[in-house]
């Protein structure tokens, strides 16, 4: 019986690996992707990159303009996250089993959040391109919707996890709904929520760069502009600036996280 169990487990692992192998081979054949050529061209790509893709003295003159765009992108990402978080808090309180007003509103608000979460930010950007065209507003709303969906889910879990028992205790004292939310649910879950918001800001700054390519705004667009016009030195400077910014934001948010938790 025990031997059987382990034998079965081994067999299903082998089956899974075999299927994965077959799928890989099939997709290589269909896309005519030459594995050997793909990997052997890597050194050449690096060589080309080292030869062309580095900032030069004169690309530095573009730095102020790049920083301008970078700051715009950062601000849009942060604004989208914080406004998304406020909406998410509202929906999470209505959607959590601990704090929902009733089962009906609970499933409605969780349902809405699920829809928003399952549409990717890039998909949102494309959808919104129709209504807002190529502007930073499109980018803002794409990030806002994505953040709202994700944070609602994260907040619901946080609320259920940390505040269930104290909510019960306050209900037993006869406290009203809003008192319970503000005196128990929010104080218990705030640090974890802040941690999620910081995570979302980091993610959004990364996505914002890519979305900028689609919406023609922000630092992503700047990169595209110089890259397409063969200004590789400036394009590489944009990349360096983005990397530095991301590392900076990450260290700031790690610091804040340590302080609040």
């Amino acid at each position: 019986m025990q031997a059987d169990y382990f034998e079965k487990k081994k067999r299903s692992t082998r089956l899974f690996l075999a299927i994965l192998g077959v799928v890989t081979v099939i997709s290589i054949i269909i896309t005519e992707y030459n594995v050997v050529k793909g990997f052997s061209s890597l050194p050449k790509a690096v060589e080309w990159g080292l030869a062309n893709f580095y900032p030069t003295q004169e690309s530095l003159t573009k730095l102020p303009a790049i920083l301008d765009k970078l700051i715009e992108t950062l601000l849009v990402s942060i604004a989208a996250t914080t406004t998304g978080a406020v909406m998410a808090l509202l929906f999470a309180i209505l959607g959590s089993n601990t704090t929902r007003v009733n089962a009906f509103f609970g499933s409605i608000s969780r349902g809405i959040a699920t829809i928003f979460r399952n549409i990717d930010v890039a998909a949102w950007a494309m959808i919104l391109l129709f209504s807002f065209g190529q502007s930073s507003l499109t980018g803002y709303f794409a990030l806002f919707f994505g953040s709202f969906g994700f944070l609602t889910r994260a907040f619901v879990e946080t609320i259920d996890e940390v505040s269930g028992s104290s909510v019960e205790a306050l209900q037993a004292t006869g406290a009203g709904y809003f008192s319970i939310i503000f005196q128990s649910v929010i104080p218990s879950s705030l640090p974890q929520m802040i941690s999620w918001i910081l995570f979302m800001i980091e993610t959004n700054i990364r996505s914002a760069t890519l979305i900028g390519l689609l919406t023609g705004s922000g630092i992503g667009f700047t990169f595209n502009l110089y890259y397409k016009s063969l200004n590789y030195d400036v394009a590489s400077l944009v990349v360096v600036v983005i990397i530095v910014a991301i590392l900076f934001i990450e260290s700031v948010s790690n610091y804040v996280r340590r302080a609040v938790l």
């Binding site: 205790a169 306050l170 004292t173 503000f182 005196q183 218990s188």
Partner: peptide, 27 residues
């Protein structure tokens, strides 16, 4: 115990009075 872990002892104690408060004072 069902306390609000992140709040102080006195705040947790005062929670016992929330039932007698107006919504605004409670919030």
């Amino acid at each position: 115990y069902n306390l609000v872990n992140r709040l102080s002892v006195i705040e947790n104690t005062l929670h016992g009075n929330l039932g007698k408060k107006s919504t605004l004072a409670g919030v």
